[in-house]
């Protein structure tokens, strides 16, 4: 058995596909492609498949990761990519296939682009001020499903404005992500738009562009 790591994109309307549906989509694409995947043993055999860091519904991804087990030595990475892409819907495509370098458990943060829209001239200064704040509190459910206040500013690792027009502003953000500390980008968008009647957080285009993990003392691009 050989486990391969697939880097894939999830773009456009595919951002509304839930994690469970995405898994089924991959399973069926594999069935169609006829690729020799490994099945689990047991009463109800299924394909072995794990995703590194599920995307929130409504957010697109330019570099997502799925680990899938194939039968040993039967297909090349290039073949996997080619055959899967023929059998995946256009908004979900495999970008590359390779070895598993890092562990998903070591993921610590992710980079996003966020395009905000306003009905009138956008108030850039106010948005910049937002990132200067020490404390912005939101209620967040922890793993035990209990609501707790958190200061989201502690989860924002970096930000910058990368594009600006009359009515739009595009930001690059690096936010904590992974099993231990995680901040969803929609929450940041909601807080930025809060109280501005010309802006609506649901209009924001959010895309996850990179995922980072800890490797010793340094951050590495997840791969």
């Amino acid at each position: 058995m050989s486990k391969r790591r697939l880097k894939f994109s999830k773009l456009n309307m595919a951002k509304f596909i839930s994690h469970l549906d995405l898994m089924r989509c991959f399973q069926r694409a594999i069935m169609r492609s006829g690729l020799p995947v490994e099945y689990s043993q047991g009463f109800n055999p299924h394909q072995r498949m794990t995703f590194a860091l599920p995307l929130p519904v409504g957010v697109t991804g330019e570099g997502e990761f799925a680990d899938i087990s194939f039968e040993d030595g039967k297909v090349t990475d290039e073949e996997i990519k080619e055959r899967l892409n023929k059998n995946l819907p256009p908004d979900i495509q495999v970008l590359s296939v390779g070895d598993l370098i890092f562990k998903a458990a070591d993921i610590v943060c992710a980079e996003y682009t966020m395009k905000l829209y306003s009905d009138k001239k956008i108030d850039t200064e106010k948005i910049k001020e937002f990132f200067g704040k020490d404390e912005v509190i939101v209620m967040k459910r922890n793993k035990k499903k209990v609501e707790k206040p958190i200061n989201i500013m502690e989860y924002i690792r970096a930000w910058e404005v990368i594009d600006e027009t009359e009515r739009t502003l595009t930001l690059r953000l690096v936010l904590d992500a992974g099993g231990e500390r995680n901040l969803k980008p929609e929450i940041v968008a909601a807080k930025i738009c809060e109280g501005d009647e010309n802006m609506c957080a649901d209009d924001a285009d959010i895309c996850r562009t990179k995922i980072f993990c800890r490797s010793g003392d340094v951050l590495e691009l997840f791969r």
Partner: peptide, 9 residues
């Protein structure tokens, strides 16, 4: 939302 997105295989 997947009810409304189309673009299925």
């Amino acid at each position: 939302p997947a009810r409304y997105i189309g673009n299925e295989f």
